[in-house]
Amino acid sequence: MTDSEPVLVLRGAAFRHPGGAGVTGLRLTVAPGEAVAVIGPNGAGKSTLLRGILGLVPLVEGAMRVGGAEHAADGMIGFLPQSSDLDPDFPISLEQVVMQGRYRRLGLLRWPGRRDREVVRGALETVGLSDRARRRFGELSGGQRQRGMLARALASEPVLLLLDEPFNGLDQANRDALIDTIRTLKSRGVAIIVSTHDLELARQVCDSVLLVNGSQIGCGPVDDVLTLENIQECFEGVEVEIDEHTVVVPGHEGH
C-alpha cells in the first residue's frame, strides 16, 4: 500500500445485521491521515457502519476495500467501542488493558515481548496516561478509561481508527485531550472515522463528513455537506446541539 492509496473505499455498500437494521448506499473514500465524521441521529446506523467496516456486520450490497484488500489484515483497524460497561473490580492494570491491543498481532501462543511493551508505552504516551500505566483500570475516571481504551486501539498500530461516539459523557478536559490525540494521529498518517452526533466536533477535527440516516444522505468536505438542507433531511424533528445551543430541527416545509 502506498501513501496515496486510500485506506478505505466503500462503493454502494450496505451493511445489515442478520434479520435486523442496516445502513445502505454508502460511498466513501478515506485517505491516510484523513478524518471523517459519521453524523446522524441515534439509530441512524452509525455503529452498524463502523462494525461493518470491522467485519462484525455483514456487507450485503456493493463493495468494500480495506487497505487495498477485501478484508482488513490483523491489527490494521483499531476500534474504540462506545463506552462499554466493564467490571470495575476486574484485576487488570491500564497497561495490561492496552496490551490487549497487541494480542491480534501476537496470535494465540506468543507472549508480549520488548517491542510490544514499547508500543504500549507509546500508546499510553499518545493519550497522555503514561503516569497511570500501573493503576488498576477500574480505579481510573470514566474519561481516563475511555482514553485507555483508545490507547488499546492504538496499540495494534492501526492504519485506520474507528471511534464510536468517543465524546459521549466526557468532561471538557478529557474531550480536549481526545481532540489533541486525534490531531496527533492524523499528522502521523492514521485515517480516522469517528461517529458522533456532535456537529461541532466534526468542524473541529474532521476533513469530511458522512451524513447518514438509514442510508447515506451526503458525503464530502465539512462545509459542503453540513448544509441546512442536508441537516434538515438527516435530523428532521431531532434535537441537535450547534455551538452550544440546542435546537429542534424542523421538517422540510413545502417539499
Binding site: 467485519g55 462484525l56 467501542p81 494480542y103 495494534s156
Partner: peptide
C-alpha cells in the same frame, strides 16, 4: 474482561 472488545479484535 471485555467480551465485545475481544470480538472486535477478531
Amino acid at each position: 474482561f471485555d467480551p465485545q472488545g475481544s470480538r472486535a479484535a477478531g
